[in-house]
């Protein structure tokens, strides 16, 4: 690892000031992607600003309108085991419990995951399907405006994700096909029966990161059943194709995972 300077922030404004003063600073949350990346010398920030000790960024609250607010520094383990989430958004709790392994889930955070927007990360599928709001120290984004491409988000360089707000949905479920070696999603599909209709979002498979499946949504609106999505697959042109699987293989996986998710949501 190259040299770096560590700073521990005590508030969001403190972190913003530290980031502003840094030459080439990076925000450090759970660090389960950033630290391994720095170990490989694929990232060399001059400064690290640790967000893990900012009390206002942590915790899960059920709000008056029923929606759930998750502080950005909340760990995957906390999301997976939270009773409000297990009741109102069981698919989200299941998804959080499938990220990495138990030890990674003790450190990794929802804010870190979405700010990195790894094309194989799990959370983006849930946020896009549920129509989440992403709150930063400057403004709010809808999930559809936030995730802009592979490892790309609409965040400014000096912007900090502070929380995620998730409206509740009647039925939610997530199904993923993990790569047998890395355990990252080759295709992960989150389905939700929301007040605005059926929503289907896919991670792991697309070249541009997370995306929705409008044809599946239409089919599920008239029939919320696994057989409704049979024969509906994304265009192969937009799928990742690499040593782990061809575009055609991934396109098919999306359909299979969507079927499994709908079946599990009942």
């Amino acid at each position: 690892m190259y040299e770096t300077k560590y700073h521990r922030a005590s508030s969001v404004s403190d972190a913003a000031a530290m980031l502003k003063n840094a030459d080439d600073g990076k925000l450090l949350s759970g660090g389960q992607t950033l630290i391994p990346t720095m170990k490989q010398r694929l990232a060399a920030p001059s400064d690290l600003i640790d967000l893990r000790h900012i009390a206002e960024m942590s915790g899960i609250t059920k709000q008056a309108d029923g929606s759930i607010r998750i502080g950005a520094a909340t760990t995957h383990a906390e999301v997976a085991s939270n009773d409000d989430i297990k009741t109102a958004l069981s698919g989200l709790a299941d998804l959080a419990g499938m990220i990495g392994d138990p030890h990674v889930r003790h450190m990794g955070t929802i804010g870190g995951s979405i700010a990195n927007n790894d094309p194989a990360a799990d959370y983006p599928a849930a946020l896009l399907a549920l129509g989440a709001t992403i709150e930063t120290n400057k403004r709010e984004f809808s999930a559809s405006n936030f995730f802009t491409g592979m490892f790309e988000t609409a965040l400014d360089e000096d912007e900090i994700v502070t929380a995620v707000i998730l409206p509740v949905a009647a039925n939610t479920a997530y199904a993923k096909f993990p790569n047998p070696a890395s355990r990252y999603a080759m295709a992960g599909v989150f389905v939700a029966k929301t007040s605005a209709g059926a929503r289907v979002a896919v991670t792991g498979a697309g070249q541009d990161g997370v995306f929705r499946m409008p044809d599946m949504e239409k089919a599920l609106d008239s029939n919320w059943a696994a057989e409704a999505v049979v024969g509906i697959a994304p265009a192969e042109d937009n799928m990742l194709s690499d040593m782990h699987g061809t575009a055609a293989y991934r396109a098919n996986l999306v359909t299979v995972m969507a079927k499994r998710a709908v079946a599990a949501s009942a």
Partner: peptide, 25 residues
């Protein structure tokens, strides 16, 4: 590569990978 778990320790009562965090953290 943060996969093997041989470096596990408990930090504040929770198992974490000590190779995937800094001592200062």
């Amino acid at each position: 590569t943060s996969q093997c778990g041989a470096c596990l320790v408990h930090m504040d009562g929770k198992a974490v990978k000590s190779c995937s965090m800094l001592a200062v953290q």
